[in-house]
Design a protein around this nucleic acid. Structure first.
Length: 260
DNA sequence: AATAGATACAACCGCTTCTTG
DNA sequence: CCAAGAAGCGGTTGTATCTAT
């Protein structure tokens, strides 16, 4: 298939987006939509390639983007979904409203992968404070809800300023250990305590896992009846789309996550 | 105070998949 | 059915910022 001759780079700008470029892109998309990314920069008067515009829009300028630190629930959801789906970041992102594949990918590589690696307890706590970009801004309440199962409230698109590219960060769901400690006034003494934040979350999570597990066994039977090779585990990966569909259907049926 | 190393994340690159004529 | 173009996706890199020494 033809490869996109994207970025006939001559004359096109690269690197970080300016506030002005953001403003132009947002204004143009709001007015005309983005049916044709390739033509968009020209129409909007941006010296960027369509690909770059698309990425900027999807990852930062979309109005429904949720910015700020990942909540513990979101992180755990990513871990679980990654176990099931592998590096299918866009699929994982689809289960985490307001989060982008790029963001999830970054979080995975910088935090979650390490968390899964065995390490001494002394290293369990995050070493760094949130960066400037991550600094929580005063927010009436986190978007992520820790309420019960019924609390599967759709995430609210946070108010965002478009004045700068980086200051758009609003910590809508800052639930990092550090901030929890600060906010709680009281203290969690360990990460284990931290995990005990909300039982309902875990029951939900477990329910999800169980559902998927039982689902998988059910599907394996179904696979047999479909005439598929009763197949080594590896074939599961080969047929991931099939699994994914089933997974989605299962979650929808049970009104399961939408993890947050 | 200086600086080397670690970390976080925005952005780019190139391949795959989808759509259309 | 085929080929070209466009969009989507995942891997990787560049750079700003923070921590430790």
């Amino acid at each position: 298939m033809g490869r996109s001759p994207c970025c006939e780079k001559m004359g096109l700008k690269r690197g970080p987006w300016t506030a002005e470029e953001d403003r132009i892109l947002v204004a143009h998309v709001e007015r005309h939509g983005h049916s044709n990314w390739r033509a968009l920069p020209k129409q909007a008067g941006l010296l960027r390639c369509g690909k770059s515009c698309r990425l900027r829009w999807i990852n930062y300028l979309r109005p429904d983007i949720k910015r700020g630190n990942f909540s513990r629930e979101e992180e755990d959801a990513i871990i679980q979904l990654h176990q099931m789906l592998g590096n299918r970041w866009s699929t994982i992102a689809a289960r985490l409203p307001g989060r982008t594949d790029n963001e999830i990918k970054n979080v995975w590589h910088t935090h979650l992968k390490k968390r899964l690696e065995p390490k001494p307890a002394s290293q369990q706590a995050p070493k760094r404070k949130p960066t400037k970009k991550q600094q929580p801004q005063p927010e009436p309440e986190p978007v992520t809800t820790l309420e019960g199962p019924a609390g599967a409230v759709p995430p609210v698109a946070p108010e965002r300023s478009l004045s700068t590219t980086t200051s758009t960060t609003t910590s809508t769901a800052d639930y990092s250990p550090a901030s929890s400690l600060e906010n709680a006034g009281d203290s969690f003494t360990s990460e284990e305590d931290y995990y005990q934040i909300d039982d309902s979350f875990w029951s939900e999570t477990l329910a999800m896992t169980t559902t998927v597990d039982s689902f998988e066994s059910g599907v394996q039977q179904a696979e047999g009846s479909f005439g598929k090779s009763a197949a080594a585990p590896s074939s599961t990966n080969d047929d991931m789309d099939f699994w994914l569909k089933l997974f989605m259907q299962a979650s929808d049926m049970q009104n399961l996550p939408q993890i947050i």
